[in-house]
Design a protein around this nucleic acid. Structure first.
Lengths: 197, 197
DNA sequence: GTCTATACACCGATAGAC
DNA sequence: GTCTATCGGTGTATAGAC
């Protein structure tokens, strides 16, 4: 069957993400990826010059795709702290529903960190996270009728860092109660970076 | 030269840690490790049954070795928040002085997370982190003459999570100012989990 | 016990038939 | 364009000389 190159590329990237999620990046060999995509090995090198090229595309694609910033249901009368905590808890639900995906994202970051040429991909990944966090923070502040007392980009970095810590801890311990305590503390900390308008 | 098996094992583990730190766990092949240790390939399999066995030993060893909980210089009159912030900043200095080591620790965690048999190693690693954090938190609270209002083990989990987030963010962005802002927010959050005695 | 030499599996990548 | 077959290299692990 004849398939356009771009279609094959996206199919391979999707397959690669599934393999990385399921088995880790170390197991994401060209053979494993084409098997997942139901293609022959040669098709791989028709669509991509090299495995490295696919991994790079995988990282950029998966980062671009990251859309659903965690914006909690906004209940009238909630203060900032509550909104943030609800946001963290909602993220936690997402993490629990698909832990392999977040684990894959972490692995891709660390993979990128290991080579100077790829390091910028990790930087972009985190810039994107910060961008999404920033948007959520602006929505939250507006809804709680407060203003950030530090530049919101800076608050966003804190939010991303706390989220990473939450993710790692939960992935290791799978301890919901501990994760909720972290979410509470993080929401508390971040809410203190705003002033009543 | 005849070397006792236990000595060879520790030499190989030390070499492995250097290779993982420098080049990542994916590059920590038996060949790379024996080259680092200045041994022949056969010596490896005389000391260890398999590469997996060495990696497992590496994780447990490196976790047991983790000793220096970050206890900041305690200046009289400092309140809890200041002590904690100083602790985070001190950790940040450590991270900056040897980023590869912390990166290696993260990689080892994620490696362990990828197989059910090794998952307990990651759990132990984080239990050890929490233990060290707990000790620091008790010293800090005593010095500031306050008491934790939540069980200190729970506070320790939060501390570990925030430290992880700080680590990842700095490793990606190498942005000292952003890291300091995270440290400040984290110290603030944790200090609110204590009450004046 | 320690080495060199090698077995064997699997990797990324390509040649060449169709 | 797409496949099967295969190359060259590297990984873990071992055999066998010393």
């Amino acid at each position: 069957m004849r398939i356009p190159a771009t279609e094959r590329r996206t199919a391979l990237i999707d397959a690669a993400l599934r393999v990385v999620s399921r088995n880790g990046i170390a197991q994401a060999t060209t053979r494993a990826i084409v098997a997942e995509a139901g293609m022959s090995l040669a098709s791989f090198h028709y669509a991509f010059d090299s495995r490295d090229e696919l991994i790079d595309e995988l990282i950029t694609t998966v980062v671009d795709r990251e859309r659903d910033a965690v914006i909690p249901d906004l209940v009238p009368g909630q203060d900032l702290r509550d909104i943030l905590e609800a946001g963290f808890l909602r993220y936690l639900d997402h993490l629990k529903s698909d832990p392999e995906h977040e684990q894959a994202m972490l692995e891709l970051t660390q993979y990128a960190l290991r080579s100077p040429e790829r390091h910028p991909l990790a930087v972009r990944q985190y810039a994107r996270y910060a961008e999404l966090a920033e948007h959520s923070l602006e929505v939250a502040a507006a809804h709680a009728d407060v203003a950030w007392s530090v530049p919101v980009e800076q608050v966003a970095r804190v939010l991303v860092a706390f989220t990473d810590g939450l993710t790692l801890t939960w992935l290791v311990d799978r301890d919901d109660a501990a994760a909720q305590a972290i979410a509470r503390a993080a929401a508390d900390a971040i809410s203190r970076l705003a002033d009543t308008r």
